Simulated assay, not measured.
Amino acid sequence: MTTTETPGEDKVRRGGLERMTGRLTALVLAVLVVGVLVAVATGDDGEEGPRAVSLPPAERVSVALPLPPAQITGVSAPSIGLAAQDTTSLGLRDDNSLDVPRSASTVGWYGDSASPGTAGAAVLAAHVDFRGEEGAFARLEQLAPGATVEVHRDDDTTAVFTVDRVDRVAKDAFPTEAVYGDVADSELRLITCGGVFNERTRSYDDNIIVFARLTEAYRPV
């Protein structure tokens, strides 16, 4: 059952989809580029529109890793039926909270995290539900280790990540360093809300966090 969130809580702290633990905020913010832009831009991959589905092996050609930086145009995870082509770039607000997508179907990429496929951790966030609609990450918790998540990019390449683990954590114990900290390899973090919806605070008690690593990349034949 979906639950409507109030407009006043349509934001995330850098530790979840409504608020974050402040314990490591200073550490994380120290590595941010000064003058973060809160830019909203949907992906566009030409006249045919952005691609949001996984291509069969016969229609792929491998691409060398790591990939150069590029904007995202879609996210797919075949094992849970995820095929999102509505994407946006997310930045920080004045209070150091992270903007969240403005619709249920949109996946947001935190623009100061790594570009998916490059070295570092790329952070994507989306709603589990929003204003009565099922969110893009509604079934995120159903991802299992070994499943794949594909991030489609505007240079016509797709970065394929393999899931290592899926954690459910209380928002007041959010692992900020594990999610936003520096890593040497190309990794992916997917974040949404989970657990019990708290009617008093109008927010979920927990976050669902997927940790995945880059295992291949391809482009259409």
Rank of each mutant, 00 (worst) to 15 (best):
V196M: 06
P101F: 06
V12H: 13
G15S: 08
N96A: 12
V123A: 07
V221S: 11
A26I: 11
T118Q: 02
M1F: 04
L29R: 09
R131Q: 13
P50W: 04
A217I: 07
R200D: 03
V63H: 03
R102E: 09
A77R: 00
G91R: 10
R93N: 07
A104Q: 05
V63F: 05
D205E: 07
A104I: 08
R168N: 13
G15T: 09
F197Q: 00
V169W: 05
G146Y: 11
A58V: 15
E141C: 07
S97C: 05
G15L: 06
F161H: 01
K171L: 10
E134N: 10
Q85F: 07
I208T: 13
T4M: 11
D44V: 14
L32I: 11
G43Y: 07
G74C: 12
L143M: 07
A121V: 12
A178H: 09
S54H: 09
A84L: 08
R93L: 11
I209Y: 03
L124E: 09
G49N: 07
Y218C: 08
Y180G: 04
V169C: 10
L98I: 13
E133I: 02
F211N: 03
T157A: 05
Y110N: 01
L29H: 12
F130Y: 13
T201E: 09
G16A: 02
D182H: 15
T87I: 01
K11M: 09
L190C: 04
R13L: 00
V221M: 10
V33N: 12
R60P: 01
A212Q: 01
S97H: 08
A138P: 05
L27E: 14
E177L: 14
L24M: 14
R60I: 02
V75R: 03
N207A: 05
V100F: 10
T162E: 13
R23W: 08
D154S: 14
S79R: 14
P145T: 03
P78D: 06
P68A: 13
A170R: 15
G81S: 01
E48T: 14
P101S: 04
T162H: 08
L82M: 07
G46E: 15
D95R: 10
I80F: 05
D206C: 01
D164R: 14
C193R: 00
F197H: 01
S79M: 04
A173F: 10
R213G: 08
G91Q: 06
V163I: 04
V53E: 13
T201D: 12
R139M: 09
R13V: 00
P220V: 03
